[in-house]
Design a protein around this nucleic acid. Structure first.
Length: 180
DNA sequence: AGTTCGGACCGTT
DNA sequence: AACGGTCCGAACT
């Protein structure tokens, strides 16, 4: 079997191979995508992505996949994700990568506003563009775009569906909003 | 207190 | 030129 398709190769290195493999969970089948640099994509169940057989993965990819798989199971179990494989965010523009990196600094159990993320990357007025960048986050859950709420504790949006955002926030004890 | 509207703002296609 | 996972203030209910 060949590795996988090349439907949406990470931009910029189109000749790179992209491996895809499913992760069965109690919430459905996720699909993870790997480049030579690491995990570069994660699709929610029902997103239409399909994966190849895990046994056909090259050794390194396969070990990454096991890390991803275990981490995802923990996350969906309401526990800290723990160790994850290297994340390949190279598909994004400079701005997007800056946003995604900032997201990774939001602690589990905490939430930021889009405006705060914008300030964190030193572009206070680009809060709207930050929303767009969040929407294009290729690795949801592990790059925690769900921890970004609209101002004044409003929920804001979520590309994969607000039910997923609520679920992920709930697993981290961040929703419903803890009252002070 | 909550809701709606209108403009300002910014990166991407 | 148009579109967003936005934000804020003003003007409502």
């Amino acid at each position: 079997m060949k590795p996988a398709n090349e439907a949406r190769p990470c931009r910029g290195n189109a000749s790179q191979e992209l491996y895809m493999a499913a992760i069965p969970t109690k919430d459905g089948d996720f699909v993870a995508g790997y480049s030579s640099k690491g995990l570069c994509r994660l699709d929610f169940p029902g997103a239409g992505a399909s994966g190849s057989d895990v046994e056909d993965l090259p050794p390194e990819i396969r070990s990454w996949h096991e890390l991803t798989s275990a981490a995802l199971q923990r996350a969906l179990d309401g526990k800290p994700a723990g160790k994850v494989p290297p994340l390949d965010l190279s598909a994004g523009t400079g701005f997007q990568q800056a946003v995604w990196r900032a997201l990774c600094t939001i602690a589990r159990g905490a939430t930021w506003s889009y405006g705060r993320v914008a300030s964190a990357i030193d572009r206070p007025k680009a809060l709207r563009a930050v929303g767009s960048a969040c929407g294009r986050n290729p690795i949801p859950v592990f790059v925690p775009c769900h921890r970004v709420l609209a101002a004044h504790d409003k929920l804001g949006g979520f590309s994969a569906g607000l039910d997923w955002k609520l679920k992920l926030l709930g697993l981290e004890g961040s929703w419903p909003r803890p009252q002070l």
